[in-house]
Design a protein around this nucleic acid. Sequence first.
DNA 1: TTAAAATCATACTAAACCGATAGGAATTTA
DNA 2: TAAATTCCTATCGGTTTAGTATGATTTTAA
Lengths: 152, 152
Amino acid sequence: MFQVPTKTQYAIRALVHLVRHSAASAGAIAEAEHISPKYLEGILAQLKAAGLVVSDRGRMGGYRLTRNPFTIPMLDVVKAMEGEVRLVECVGEGGACFAASGCLPRKFWLGLKQTVDTYLTSVSLGDIAEVDSSEGIPSVADRPASQTQIKE
Amino acid sequence: MFQVPTKTQYAIRALVHLVRHSAASAGAIAEAEHISPKYLEGILAQLKAAGLVVSDRGRMGGYRLTRNPFTIPMLDVVKAMEGEVRLVECVGEGGACFAASGCLPRKFWLGLKQTVDTYLTSVSLGDIAEVDSSEGIPSVADRPASQTQIKE
DNA sequence: TTAAAATCATACTAAACCGATAGGAATTTA
DNA sequence: TAAATTCCTATCGGTTTAGTATGATTTTAA
């Protein structure tokens, strides 16, 4: 259950790529990750809107992370793609619940949401990319491409 | 994210109803829980196929749980409705992964699945129904129909 | 200055999924 | 025998999803 949308999976793979390459164009990422280029453009736009990446237009342009990947909990990524995590309608605030049982399952769903949120907060993008936490500070834009190890 | 399908939510509410009423017809459950009756029929059929409930046809028929609700982990319910939990394609076995990064996110998804599974296993249907664990033993199939209270 | 490479913007599409409905056949009991 | 029920199968409209199409805008490099 809870099939994770392809879009979100793509977003994560794109971000991992950015962690490991410091900067890259949509086309480059698409090719490396086997994602439809045009589709990926939209995903990157979303990530940008969420403030996770920044872009440079024009020739030689591309995308970069805005923060150290170890400061980006995966929950942020997921939220960027899917909006606020809401497993179930009535988990929100003024949930007018029609269930005769007074919405007994609500606690259950809240517990599940809590569990998922905790996990997603505990893992960072840096963790996933499996990059050394001491080096991976690409963000600051102008890291020398020479230094960057693209250890495939 | 991970919006839980209405169908699954309905299933849980129906089961909670069965815990609290011992037995009930699809129509009765539908009315009490404000669920489309015909739609609910299909849901109950699925629950039956999964062995969670049993049915009596004909007049005075209806549905009953097959087990003590405290022995039914919610994971079983979810699986009954949505099949095996598979958050992501490549979490399966021979996942041929096209990602250049060798599917780095895989561990992440596996961890999430593990987290969710653990939670869903730790909570039982009985817990949700908030019924006294000493009484709620409808299961044993052959409870006298006369005795069976289809109270409303 | 110009052409290529890139982001950005917008609209469209085909397919799948989802919640629900329709119409009955089969079964059981009062 | 009639009513109440489960069971079976098909269909439907709406939404989402993954992807495509087209082109405008921006920037750099030659």
